[in-house]
Simulated scan of single mutants.
Amino acid sequence: MIDDRPSAVRGGGAFSALARDGLTHVELTWIEKKLEHWIRFGRIAQDRILTRRTRVVGFRPGAVFAFVRWAANDFGTIVSRIDVVRAVAANEAYTTLPFVRPGGDILLKIEGWPKVSQVLAAIDAVEAAGVDPCDAAADHWRHVHNRIAAGQQPRLYTIERHHAWLKRREIEG
């Protein structure tokens, strides 16, 4: 027998129940010093608390957010990762990502705490320039990814570059 209920689609559970709203959902878990998933930046459109340690946040299509995942065991850090993702609309192609449903357009994907801390510093630099990281050019996050992956320092995101990005976006419509 095939179960055709909406909750049976794509793994069931809280994600599938929320998937019908057109948002990109991210499951966040916080178990102090063991498993920590959090949003570094992003405009959250929906926030649902599932348990004391777990919640699901939703982002509208086109929203850009940074998702940090960290886990440790008795011997130290075992996972350290940051992804900068653009939430996609229902008809857009996407890349799957753990804890993100359905997935998104991955602008930056970095693993390992030394590199993750470089990304966090790049985010801080965007904020220091007076720009909300959600509004920074998608190309900047790709640039940060490529430079860090190549072992080089990313260029700073300046207010002039941001204004150029806004003009380009205005022209492209």
Rank of each mutant, 00 (worst) to 15 (best):
A121L: 14
L120N: 12
R101S: 12
N146K: 14
H162P: 06
A164Y: 03
I44M: 01
A93D: 14
D74N: 01
S7N: 08
E160W: 03
T158E: 05
F99C: 05
S80G: 14
H145W: 11
C134L: 11
G104V: 13
A121R: 15
P114N: 14
A121Y: 07
L50R: 09
A14T: 05
A71D: 00
R53P: 05
D4E: 02
T29W: 05
G103M: 08
P61T: 12
T95W: 00
Q46D: 12
R155G: 13
E36R: 09
R86E: 10
A63Q: 15
R60I: 09
K109I: 05
E170P: 04
I78S: 03
P154T: 10
V64D: 10
V9W: 05
A71V: 01
I110N: 01
K167I: 04
G62T: 08
E127L: 09
P133G: 12
P114R: 15
S16I: 05
R142V: 10
R161S: 10
N73C: 01
I82G: 07
V85R: 00
A66V: 13
R101K: 12
V144Q: 02
A19E: 08
K33R: 15
G13T: 10
K109A: 08
A14I: 09
W141M: 00
T158W: 02
R53L: 14
L156W: 03
F59P: 07
V144A: 00
H25K: 08
G11K: 14
K34L: 02
A121W: 07
